[in-house]
């Protein structure tokens, strides 16, 4: 089954003052796909999203968004995609309604009143429509920003950490909404630092130091990492992280509650590494998690990127 590609970029590169911030980034995304965009702080997620939505001109690389050229048709791209900025980008000194009204007018939408009214109802903010946007709590601001960037019914949504600071209930609603949108054929590229959110995506892209290090579905990424994991349960297991991490063959060790999660590429080596504590603690093999993979990538990406750069 092939779905038409809505985002198709290759070799996107951006340098700031000679420093390569995004390095030959490739991404193909089909209609109705939700792609989670992950990576440590400063890895270039925002910069990449900005290049895709026409806010930054790449120094190198080509691409098409909705069949429009990334360089020459930026104005049209802006009209057709929805971009939610990482920092709250609406006007704090305008009311909720005025903000939505402004956006609707800029996009030249018809039936402005009705559309704004509907958006307010969907948001559940109809009764507070005349409150200043700046007075909203952080989570509500995020929801308002999302509503604003979807007002013109874009075919692509680029969301930069849309759920930062949003409570779990609202996050779940948000993700339900994202999936509902994807079912209508909207492509979503969403950056996040939350693992549970990554797991709710159809596919993920992991970037560190501007370089894409992992790409695919959750399972594909975990398998490709070749990571194996052991979970230790028993008295004091959670306090052994530092000791075990120092042993050969162990890449990461982290406590989860009372249990200890140990990761490495070779199961036999891992078993040897934990053997000194085998009598008090029961070790069982568990699948490596996405988080294991990302932590591992993050730790080892730095050396990789140092080599990759002169």
């Amino acid at each position: 089954m092939t779905v038409p590609l809505t985002i198709d970029v290759a070799g996107l590169t951006k340098r700031f003052a000679g420093r390569t911030v995004v390095d030959h980034f490739d991404l193909q995304l089909g209609e109705g796909r939700i792609c989670g965009f992950l990576g440590p702080n400063g890895s270039g997620k925002t910069t990449t999203l900005r290049m895709i939505c026409g806010l930054l001109i790449p120094d190198e690389g080509e691409g098409q968004v909705l069949g429009l050229d990334l360089r020459s048709e930026r104005a049209e791209i802006k009209r057709r995609i929805g971009y939610m900025t990482q920092r709250f980008g609406l006007f704090e000194d305008l009311t909720i309604r005025e903000n939505l009204d402004f956006v609707a007018q800029v996009y030249g939408l018809d039936h402005r009143r009705r559309r704004v009214g509907e958006a307010l109802d969907r948001l559940g903010l109809a009764t507070r429509a005349d409150q200043l946007a700046g007075k909203l709590s952080g989570g509500w601001k995020q929801r308002l920003a999302l509503a604003a960037c979807m007002l013109h019914e874009p075919r692509i949504l680029l969301l930069d950490e849309p759920t930062a600071g949003v409570d779990p209930q609202a996050r779940r609603e948000f993700w339900d909404q994202i999936h509902a949108l994807a079912r209508t054929g909207i492509t979503v590229l969403v950056s996040t630092h939350y693992m549970d959110e990554a797991e709710r995506c159809h596919e993920i892209a992991y970037i560190a130091y501007g370089v894409m290090l992992a790409r695919g579905t959750t399972e594909q990424v975990v398998v490709a990492s070749g990571l194996r994991a052991l979970t230790g349960e028993g008295p004091g297991a959670d306090r052994l992280a530092a000791d075990i991490e120092a042993r050969p063959g162990v890449r990461t060790a982290a406590a989860f509650g009372a249990a200890l999660h140990v990761c490495g590429t070779d199961l036999a080596e891992l078993r040897t590494a934990v053997s000194p504590w085998a009598d008090q603690i029961r070790w069982t093999e568990t699948p490596a998690t996405l988080e294991d993979v990302f932590i591992d990538l993050m730790r080892h990406a730095s050396d990789h990127s140092v080599q990759a750069r002169p």
């Binding site: 900025t85 980008g89 609406l90 006007f91 800029v106």
Partner: peptide, 14 residues
């Protein structure tokens, strides 16, 4: 300064 410029620029405003 308020971070609204990025949003304005992302919209189809010339």
């Amino acid at each position: 300064e308020r971070g609204t410029m990025e949003n304005l620029l992302a919209m189809p405003l010339r």
